[in-house]
Design a protein around this nucleic acid. Structure first.
Ligand SMILES: [Mn+2]
Ligand SMILES: [Mn+2]
Ligand SMILES: [Mn+2]
Ligand SMILES: [Mn+2]
Lengths: 216, 216
DNA sequence: ATAATTTTTTAGATAAGGCTAAAATTTTTT
DNA sequence: AAAAAATTTTAGCCTTATCTAAAAAATTAT
């Protein structure tokens, strides 16, 4: 059994590995968890003893099969709860993340299985992220950042790279949501900002925004 | 904001006050929480500083208005989650308590309000216990222990005094559940055991059992 | 190949929440 | 009213998860 803190470390390392591959540095974990590198060193030693990751001094860490499964299960719980909050309890997509951060630590295999049934075995959470099955597997969907789309090309918004309330509220304000068609009208080479057509309206968004929207 | 531990102390003291009135002893809290009296002393000092209870050395504690409200809210969450688990997720009444012990500590006012809406504002949990409203108020229903019913009298089961899985499974095995009619056929004065008629079947139950069933 | 810089680890502290053992206080018995 | 027993508090220690500051190792720049 893992403590709340241990679970948060596992989840962070899992997410970092998904982006950067094996060998996650102490510092990057510290940044992600908003803690200090020295705290990370202590914790990864403990997690290595629990066989969920491999750690060699000064070399960073990699999850073991066990660790990856454990982490995927926490992500599964997080995303199922997010679906529950949006589909059943009238939460909007910018309100669910913080509550799901708490709910993901509830320990009860039956609870999560039944929740899955109750929700109709959803494959995606409200932000377009895939929900792992009990074994930790999920279908990886084709997607790219809006920032990589060329001028005059069109894509459909299928996900976001940032689930913070601030960012999602910005999207709401500009009528950007999952499933929406987005056409790039022009690209400013100086700062990478885009003028896009969405909902038959022209808006200009910064590079930082287009770097956090996934399209297909 | 209160920690998980603080919340469990508040809830225990709240339940103890409901039975024994003001002035709850250190020892009784320790017993309820399965901890040591010395740990209780430390914690109640902290809770007294936080103004949720009044504490005078060697005199036991009493909840303040604030503390009672805080405790009632935790009970409210616990019982709403129990309803959710039984009504929506196919849990039986003997499976919900431990999970609700975890879920009651999730912090999100919107979550619990919406859950209440989603469940249709239930007034009772699966064990017949009342669900406090946001102010901590609830209707106190008339009920007495089955052990106090005289021979040849009949009552309807409306609650249980013990929500442990073991006890509830015993009741299931003997077809005793909320709403069922129970008639006392005979009472053994030596040990207080009862022979009752339930579901047109005669069974004999010990005093310990009849002391944990509420009827109306 | 050194030197400077950055990253990581270690050492030592702290706070929360728990424990045991001993001391203080209250309650019950004689 | 003492003495005995029970309850409660205090003192000191432990574990978990943090932190800061200093030391060690790795990386980057000169
Ligand atoms: Mn999330
Ligand atoms: Mn999400
Ligand atoms: Mn319960
Ligand atoms: Mn209950």
């Amino acid at each position: 059994m893992f403590s709340l803190s241990e679970e948060n470390y596992l989840k962070s390392i899992y997410h970092l590995e998904a982006i950067h591959g094996k060998g996650i540095s102490t510092n990057s974990i510290a940044k992600k968890l908003e803690t200090k590198a020295s705290s990370v060193t202590d914790m990864i030693k403990k997690l290595a003893e629990k066989k969920v990751l491999v750690y060699k001094k000064y070399q960073g860490v990699s999850l073991t099969v066990l660790g990856r499964k454990e982490a995927a299960n926490i992500v599964r719980k997080h995303r199922l709860w997010e679906v529950f909050l949006v589909d059943k309890l009238n939460f909007s997509w910018d309100e669910v993340h913080d509550v799901a951060e708490q709910l993901e630590h509830i320990k009860s295999p039956k609870l999560i299985d039944e929740l899955d049934v109750f929700l109709g075995f959803p494959k995606m959470d409200p932000h377009g992220d895939p929900i792992p099955d009990k074994e930790g597997n999920f279908q990886k969907i084709e997607k790219r950042l809006l920032s990589t789309l060329e001028e005059n090309k069109t894509g459909i918004c299928v996900g976001v790279n940032d689930s913070s309330s601030d960012f999602l509220k910005y999207l709401d304000k500009n009528n950007i949501s999952l499933g929406k068609k987005i056409k790039v009208l022009s690209k400013e080479s100086f700062d990478g900002s885009l003028t896009i057509l969405i909902h038959s309206k022209e808006i200009t968004i910064s590079k930082k925004i287009s770097n956090n929207i996934y399209i297909q």
